[in-house]
Design a protein around this nucleic acid. Structure first.
Lengths: 156, 156
DNA sequence: ATAATTGCAAAGTCTTTGCAGTTTG
DNA sequence: CAAACTGCAAAGACTTTGCAATTAT
């Protein structure tokens, strides 16, 4: 299982964390313990989606005194900075993820779970939609609703 | 403008309203003034999306004593009956519409407005998604997020 | 008559905000 | 030091729920 040392992977994580914090500083922001912990959680979760609640729980495991409102405010700052994407839809709250890898979201209408879809899936459609409706799909973060495999087999 | 008589179109509306109410009765439910008003608003709005708040406002214009909780409970019943579709995503609440015409939803991440997309737009993709992820897009009610034409031109 | 529905009020989520004290740069 | 950030507590938006009274069938 996980050792006490630091793996190359963890170094990568730290590098990413520091570069994001540096962006905050460059923007006139301050780096605090809470913010560092939040960014760290966000980077660690970069392959899936987290809610503000998930983050609060993770952060508070190490730093019990980091308040929920700090999580929300930090999330806002990161979004304003352009490094975080907020998906304000979702059963029971928004989900967030870093803007580092493009993909699409399949959200289950029944259980709220979010599945990632292969990027480029919607490329052929994006053009048509824009031409016909003036609506431009965010190519990096399209979100589509439906019913996931598990719920599909469950009677309502 | 609108006269005091009843147009053929309004007759259609009433017919639809009554058939839905009849379904409720068939299901063991009761038809009340509030429920009739709610269903009527829903039918009148069948070409766009409404929030529980929209409905409450419309209904209360004629029947000030119909409570919000009644709106929510009626909406729940209609959904359980399968005649109403609830889209639990949206900035500031869920939107609803009757299950009578298939279409897709383009939801703006910035202003929350919902634009309808031509049906069949996602047909070519639905298969691929299902094959690759096990996630089945609800063909009648796919919802996609992005930025609408208006917001696109507005600086953040 | 009786089972369903209602209004009310209270509570539950998720999120935001004003404020005074603390910390960062 | 000054500006930024924090915890706290309160409030706001949306929705659900328990209850006793009312109403549809």
């Amino acid at each position: 299982m996980a050792g006490t040392g630091r793996s190359p992977l963890q170094d990568d994580v730290e590098t990413t964390v520091e570069s994001i914090l540096e962006e905050m500083r460059a923007d006139g922001g301050r780096v605090t313990t809470g913010r560092r912990a939040i960014v760290r959680s966000l980077v660690a979760a970069s392959d899936h989606h987290v809610t503000a609640d998930d983050l609060a729980a993770q952060v508070q495991a190490d730093h019990p005194d980091v308040h929920r409102s700090t999580v929300y405010r930090t999330l806002d700052s990161l979004e304003a900075l352009g490094v975080l994407h907020r998906i304000p839809f979702g059963v029971g709250g928004a989900v967030y993820h870093l803007v580092d890898h493009a993909h699409h979201h399949l959200v289950c209408t029944r259980c709220g779970s979010v599945v990632e879809a292969p990027p480029g899936l919607f490329a052929p459609i994006a053009e048509r939609v824009e031409a016909e409706t003036g609506f431009s799909l965010d190519r990096a973060h399209v979100m589509v609703s439906g019913v996931c495999a598990a719920c599909r087999c469950t009677p309502v």
